[in-house]
Write a protein that binds this DNA or RNA. Structure first.
Lengths: 212, 212, 212, 212
DNA sequence: AATGAATGAGTTTTCATTCAT
DNA sequence: CATGAATGAAAACTCATTCAT
């Protein structure tokens, strides 16, 4: 699976060959076929692996209060170009995503992943409304917007290359960082109960880094 | 160029062959090579064409007031699964986007496109601030967030298949529609000057449809 | 015809295309086909042109005494890499020659050319024997040897590149020059009647140059 | 390598395709590409093989006296049209030679081959001078002439077709045979020490045939 | 006479997959 | 489990030739 990831990072989905994958491992092309009948099988297994690992990471701090879980959720989307593994990971995912409409098995997994993301987020918001942390809003709508914005920011950051930092208030800032900051300021802050304050983004990012 | 678009819609980027493109036109594979030396040349020319056409379309309602131009901009992103061409088309584009990191010529075009989108949006917002339509906000930050959210919503709608309608307030609604509605309500409305009202989304969509 | 020669010089026979030839002229590929039905027709016409011109050059000093005509004949084979046209000319010829066995029309012309060369040489030698300039030898055998050696030297000089000068007695000397010198010394000198002397090679070369 | 040789014999260099080569072997076109990345790689490898094999054959009678080695050397050049493989083979080689000026890797091999031929011959002559078999002559000059004449004779015999036998003293004789006989009589005999005699040509040819 | 557009047949090369070991 | 050898199908690209103008 590591070899698939490396190969995908190096060659992209459209140009990916079994030989490319074999080259990234210490094994032969034939062995890949011994374990996975077809290239598609291998890629589907890879995607499954990817999403499962991803899902596991999403909610490991479920015991925190809603505003912290929410900032956690957003903070996980922020990454810098130096964060090499993350970029590669999401690039690989993006490539597979664009194949979804041509492949049912891929499609199904993507849907599972999307549902999980939105449901997790909607649940956090719903919990926050229940305990008075957030003003009453439609959790599904808000979750959908947040997920779309986070996903879009990540896609742009990945596909537009390194030269693509935004310059905000004089700071150079990645696309994902800019989006998360704006979401916190424009979407989350306004629905926060008067007596609540949001955890600091940088502090949260640092904490999450420590956990990995 | 029409043939490239059709072929991309039908086969996707990763599986696109010169023969596929030739089949969509009434011409032969050889003729494609007569006009474009390589497949890459053809696809880059296609992307260039696409963006140029897009740029031209953006300009055309530049005489409207800022709040109308803003709603126009958002409304253009909304589409339904019935809107067959658009879905397939943006899917193909998404595939090409995921090739950006592996192909400088594609990368360059994508960057040009992103810059255009954000600058157009930032300009609309800045104009609105200047003439008192909008409260003073950072146009660049707001533009980046809007573009990310619109892009993300579109990507999800495309990649997640038809079963993927969101159910909001009992209405079944596409991802792009949901995102645009939320953006208007959560991001645009709050910065609108007290004496202004936003044009209606459905009316705007209908107008744009009529123009094409 | 000039365009064929240039194209042949630039690309070689095996890689020669009609487009290459058109590129060397100011005309289009289509026009070549207007004048010559097929590529083969064009190349055969080119070869014919080449050989006819060549034949015309062979014997224009028929009024000289045999020993002078003989040295003339040999001297015409000597050329240096600076002699750019000559090298290109014979390279083109060599390429066509190697196609002879696959093409009767080419073959026929080559045979005509070979016969002419050997007969001319044999006649010079026979004339020399008749008038006592040369000792009696078999004119056909001697002519065959001379032609073979001259041809072989030329082929090697052409195909082995510029770095291929022979170093004889400390002088750097081309393959053709070395062969002609040796032929004069080892083959011609020994059959020269006692009271005859051979014309000087360099003087002859200079005279021929002046004529062109 | 055998398949390359067969295919070259059958189709010539200019018309040689990978399919032709595959057809001559029991293997597929793809397998050729498995072992050699490109057609050029394969042909260069073939040329290299050829020369290496040739080098090995030259060594093997190095223990003979100089006059025998010399006649051996010349005798190897003699062949008849019946000698089917050789004719076709040298034709293909001639085609490759005419590619030398357009291909550095081929060029290099040709130069190596030329050097080998001339050095071998020069060494035989030098050895003969040392031990008194030959009169003192310049070994390099003589070698260059012999090689040129042998090569030229072969080229003419190959390219001029079957109708091209020379008629000497009433015998029909191939170009190579005529050249070798003349070289022995005109160049070698005269430099042979008084007490030496040359081995018989036909006997030598028969011996060499037996060895292969 | 002249050309740009067009094409079919063919060429090199690629690649997922299979097979013998 | 592991691999090098092998292959058929298909890909990009080439090119002599033709056609409409």
């Amino acid at each position: 699976m590591d070899a698939v990831a490396s190969a995908l990072r190096r060659h992209g989905y459209a140009d990916l060959t079994m030989q490319d994958i074999a080259d990234e491992s210490s094994k032969s092309k034939s062995l890949l076929h011994y374990h996975y009948d077809t290239k598609e099988d291998l890629l589907v297994a890879f995607l499954d692996d990817l999403l499962t690992e991803y899902e596991n990471r999403i909610e490991c701090r479920a015991d925190q209060p809603p505003e912290q879980r929410l900032v956690d959720f957003l903070a996980r989307f922020v990454f810098t170009p130096e964060d090499d593994g993350r970029e590669a990971f999401h690039l690989a995912l993006l490539e597979m995503r664009s194949q979804g409409p041509f492949n049912d098995r891929i499609q199904t997994q993507l849907e599972r992943s999307d549902r999980l993301l939105r449901e997790t987020l909607a649940e956090i918001i719903a919990d926050g409304i229940d305990d008075g942390t957030f003003e009453p809003v439609d959790p599904d709508r808000t979750a959908a917007l947040l997920v779309a914005a986070l996903d879009g920011a990540r896609t742009r950051q990945i596909t537009l290359g390194e030269a693509n930092e935004l310059s905000l208030d004089g700071r150079a800032v990645t696309y994902t960082r800019a989006a998360v900051e704006e979401l916190l300021a424009q979407i989350i802050e306004p629905i926060l109960a008067d007596d609540e304050t949001l955890p600091d983004l940088d502090t949260t990012i640092a904490e999450l880094d420590r956990e990995d």
